[in-house]
Design a protein around this nucleic acid. Structure first.
Lengths: 153, 153
DNA sequence: GTACGTGCAAAGAATTTGCAGCCAG
DNA sequence: CTGGCTGCAAATTCTTTGCACGTAC
């Protein structure tokens, strides 16, 4: 899971290739932000990345970190665990249940599945802590967004 | 999944009982906010609940809706799909993977599982749209938070 | 050299809080 | 009656944007 030190060279080559292909410039800041996110297994927020990079580039600004993380997300170099300005949402269904999420419009629908409720906990997960609940999320496009896409092109 | 109209009476009884047990007052606003969240299957945000309730209580304010939704969450009447002021977080792992999440400190760790990647899609989910990806999240407490709890009490 | 990137400061969006009057118990 | 609840407005927090200068290509 954690990248071996000698993998980093490869990752940088990939990084450079992706930037070049996208026609964006390779800057000192971008490389250091990339390094910072690659080096950790902690899913950092922008502020955390900022603090890390600032040790190597003391003049970097937080908004550059934000802009760069967005750029990397758009280029598929990293992913973000929640989309920007995503709001708090509430759920009245208090029974164990799982979700279908439309990645286009944000639609969420519940479904229940005793099978998923009782998913076996892998050893790798036991190593992290004690699990209380398994939650499965299927991500894709809802029919409405699928139709819109087809008519669009 | 969608509550039957005649179930609503029961839900209100439960609502009243929970409020009474917690020693908080039952107000017009609280009942209408509860009704609004119960009536939908859409996992609304605070703004959406506000718009709905305002049709019945035009003078209600958005911050009352926020405070009430938080109260209901604390009382276990509803749940929230992301915790308050949760920040954007970034993930450098671009391979298919799943998460362990500590509900106490927010720690997230990756693990991979070909088995979970290929989870069979239930018919109920097919009805919602076309699934691209299955993602499993195990929620619980990490060892660090577990230890803290034990020492605490 | 030129267009893209950066840092600064200020704006924006979502959520929270302080306070004074109001109403459920 | 009285403390908890509400509505108002202003504060906070996280994230985004406009602009002038700097730098990779």
């Amino acid at each position: 899971m954690e990248p071996h030190p000698d993998e980093f060279g490869q990752q940088v080559s990939h990084f450079q290739e992706v930037l070049k292909r996208a026609g964006v410039k390779q800057t000192h800041q971008r490389l250091e932000i990339f390094r910072e996110v690659m080096q950790t297994v902690e899913h950092p927020d922008a502020e955390t990345v900022y603090r890390g990079v600032r040790q190597r580039i003391p003049t970097i600004s937080l908004d550059t970190v934000y802009r760069t993380l967005m750029l990397f997300t758009d280029l598929g170099l990293i992913s973000s665990l929640k989309t920007s300005h995503e709001r708090m949402r509430f759920d009245a269904n208090m029974h164990a249940h799982h979700h279908f999420v439309c990645t286009e419009c944000g639609m969420i629908r519940d479904f229940s599945s005793p099978e998923f409720d009782a998913l076996a906990i892998p050893d790798a997960v036991r190593a992290f802590g004690s699990t209380v609940q398994a939650h499965v999320e299927f991500r894709g496009l809802c029919w409405h967004c699928l139709e819109k896409k087809q008519h669009g092109t």
